[in-house]
Each structure stands twice: as structure tokens, then as C-alpha cells.
């Protein structure tokens, strides 16, 4: 079932934490420029799946191919691969002891070896893209939650990744700040970025997602275009989850 053009190709993924099996055999293919939305109750394994995709968690079984390269192969240079996979975290995880610009340019300078001027240019462009051109020399503590998350997105985008993973990007934000982050995500999608998003923002999924995946209890229960999943879900579990969320 493996698609040679796939940007992300997950096969037979299994992961346990101690005696708790969190991922029970996941198969997932994401094509270039697709925006895949993952929904499901807490504990369903959605975050773990995402974190396996850049090896922040080590799977017990299975294979993960990103842009044709097998991530779990010991010979693979994981640092180089991670630069091709952008990750955005729920709690932003900006470096508090550096300015926003330094946050964005750190990997450019140290891991890619770019010069200070080159890195600065790229960094400023990335920050302008997320609407933070005027906050370049601010410290994270001086920014609102929404601005911090956008800065975190800029940090990932500056490395020109092939695919971006979003782990509940707006869950830690006050409601009025969510919109600014979703706008940036929409812009990325329009520019053709491949994205996998774990989130509760159902309306965003309806508007922007190419495919919605419903996960429960460590397996993919069903997946399909948003109209079908939200409009006429096939499985009872999907229906009850959507009903709970709508309530």
C-alpha cells in the first residue's frame, strides 16, 4: 500500500509505554501538500503518533519513511532528517534566554553552519511571514501566547522543512489568540506545505483539511474528507466522539 510519492509513510507502527500499549499498528500515508487533521479523545495516541514521526518517541515496531528516507534506520542522520521535519509544540518551547530572532536562527547557524548575516535574513523573513517583523528583538516573555506560538512556527519554517507536524498548536492559547495562529497555518497550507495537525479546532479542519483521521485507543478508526467524517461518519465511535465534542 506504500505510495512512492508519499511525503510521510507510516507502516505497522506500534508503541508501548511500559505495559500500556498506546499505538496498536498504525498505517498512514500523507501525500505532498496534503493537510491531514488528526482528531480523537485524549489517550488515543494522536500525540504519540506525531512525536514518533520525528523520533521524539522511539517506536517499538514498524517503519516511518519521510520523503523516502527510513527514519528508524540506525544509519539515518536523525539531526539532518529533523531539519526536514518541522515540529510545533503545544507549549511553544521557545528558548527564554534568547531573543525571538535568535530562537529562529540558532539551528540555522549551529546546525546548518550559515553565517550570521545569512541566518539573520532568513530569520527576519520567516518572522515577517508569521506577522512578527516588529518583534524580532523581543524576548519570548514579552510576547503574548499567540505571538509566541507564531514565533515557534517561524522557528520551524525557517529551516524550510518538507513536512510540518503540529501537536495541539492552539490548545494552550486563550480563545481570542487562536485565530492569529490558525491564520498562519492557513497561509502555510496555501503556500503548499505538507502538514499533519493534531488539534481540537474542528472548524479549521472543516475549512482547511484535505483529510481527517479519527483515532481512538491506539488505532485509526476511520479517515476521509472532512465533509464525510464530520457529516456522515461510518463508525459509532466516531459519531459518539463528535457528539461529545459538539456538546
Amino acid at each position: 500500500m506504500s505510495d512512492d510519492n508519499a511525503m510521510l509513510d507510516v507502516a505497522g507502527l506500534r508503541k508501548s509505554f511500559g505495559s500500556l500499549e498506546v499505538l496498536r499498528g498504525i498505517d498512514l500515508t500523507v501525500r505532498p501538500q496534503e493537510l491531514v487533521f488528526v482528531i480523537g479523545p485524549s489517550g488515543s495516541g494522536k500525540s504519540t503518533l506525531l512525536r514518533c514521526c520525528n523520533r521524539l518517541e522511539e517506536p517499538d515496531e514498524g517503519s516511518i519513511r519521510v520523503d523516502g528516507v527510513e527514519l528508524l534506520d540506525p544509519k539515518t542522520d536523525i539531526n539532518a532528517m529533523r531539519r526536514r521535519i518541522g515540529m510545533v509544540f503545544q507549549s511553544f518551547n521557545l528558548y527564554p534566554h534568547m531573543t525571538v530572532l535568535s530562537n529562529v536562527t540558532l539551528a540555522l547557524r549551529k546546525a546548518l553552519g550559515k553565517s550570521r548575516t545569512e541566518a539573520r535574513e532568513i530569520g527576519e523573513a520567516a518572522l515577517a511571514r508569521v506577522g512578527l517583523a516588529d518583534k524580532v528583538d523581543a524576548y519570548p516573555a514579552q510576547l503574548s501566547g499567540g505571538q509566541q506560538q507564531r514565533a515557534a512556527i517561524a522557528r520551524a519554517v525557517a529551516l524550510e522543512p518538507k513536512i510540518m507536524l503540529f501537536d495541539e498548536p492552539t490548545s494552550a492559547l486563550d480563545p481570542e489568540l487562536v485565530g492569529s495562529v490558525l491564520a498562519v497555518m492557513r497561509e502555510l497550507r496555501e503556500a503548499g506545505m505538507t502538514m499533519v495537525v493534531v488539534s481540537h479546532e474542528m472548524r479549521f479542519a472543516r475549512d482547511a483539511a484535505d483529510r481527517v483521521i479519527f483515532m481512538d485507543d491506539g488505532v485509526i478508526v476511520e479517515q476521509g474528507p472532512p465533509e464525510r467524517i464530520f457529516g456522515s461518519p461510518e463508525h459509532a465511535r466516531t459519531r459518539s466522539f463528535l457528539a461529545d465534542v459538539a456538546a
Binding site: N54, N79, M87, N93, L106, A107, A111, A152, A156, L159
Partner: peptide
């Protein structure tokens, strides 16, 4: 902090 830095390839 570790995760963010490692995920940018450092």
C-alpha cells in the same frame, strides 16, 4: 526545551 531544540536538527 530539549525537544524543541532537537526537533530543529541540533
Amino acid at each position: 526545551q530539549w525537544e524543541a531544540a532537537r526537533s530543529t536538527g541540533l
